[in-house]
Structures are given as C-alpha cells and as structure tokens.
Amino acid sequence: MAEFSTTIKEHDDVSIIYLKGYLDAHTTPVLENTFANLIEKEKYKIAVNFKDLAYISSAGLGVFMAFIEKIRDNKGDIKFTSMSDKVYNIFDLLGFPLLYEIFKSEEEAVNKFKENKKVED
C-alpha cells in the first residue's frame, strides 16, 4: 500500500537523506539499506530530512537506533531536520530529542556539522 523512498544529496561532507512517504515495519528495509550504503562508503555525517515524511512507526525509529552507535564511534552523527509537528511529537514522546539533535532547517544541521569540525580542528 503506502510507499516509502529515500534520496540522498551530498552537501560538502554531509550526506542528507530525504525521506518520503510512510516509514513503517514494512518499509524500514529501504532506510536500512540507505544507511548501510552510506556507512559502507564511510560517510558518517548524516542529516535526515523529514519534510516529505507522512508517517513514521516505532519500527521506523528503530532504524536510527540500529546505526547511531556505529556512526558516533566513527566521529559522525545523525541529525534530524524539518520535522512536521506530528512526526516531532512521536520523536518527542519516545525521548528521541534527548539522544539526537533536531533542527528546524537542513541548513542549521549542516552548519552544526561544520562547527563541530572546527572544534575538532
């Protein structure tokens, strides 16, 4: 029924994943593959754009949990941007804002990555 797809855009060394459609237990493998591919290419700076995401289930949230450890171990991060109120509410209830940085716009997320890099340098 409901479809889900991802597209990736590279912004400097930050990979931005655009989610579209319904992310539930059936469509999580799509997102899992996307993450696995990025990690394979050693891209650990990832921003996820939720602008076009209509729905996310708990299984969908699980995908981020599955990869965050590996990504942070490699000095990367997953940052969330452009969430609708509805989607933010789901993240909020589960306590995700305690674990992940969530930004209003994509730009802020990318800038945050840059700032962190400067600090490291």
């Binding site: 949990m65 209830l93 589960l94 306590g95 995700f96 305690l98 674990l99």
Partner: peptide
C-alpha cells in the same frame, strides 16, 4: 501526565535514569 523519560532500550547509560 507526561513525565519525561525515553523509551526502554534507547540508552543504557546513567543518562536514562537522569532523564
């Protein structure tokens, strides 16, 4: 009634208890 707290299994450090 929404006392703060994240889902079980999301974090296993003291952070879980503290939040």
């Amino acid at each position: 009634l929404t006392p703060s707290g994240m889902g079980l299994g999301l974090d296993f450090s003291e952070y879980f208890e503290n939040t």
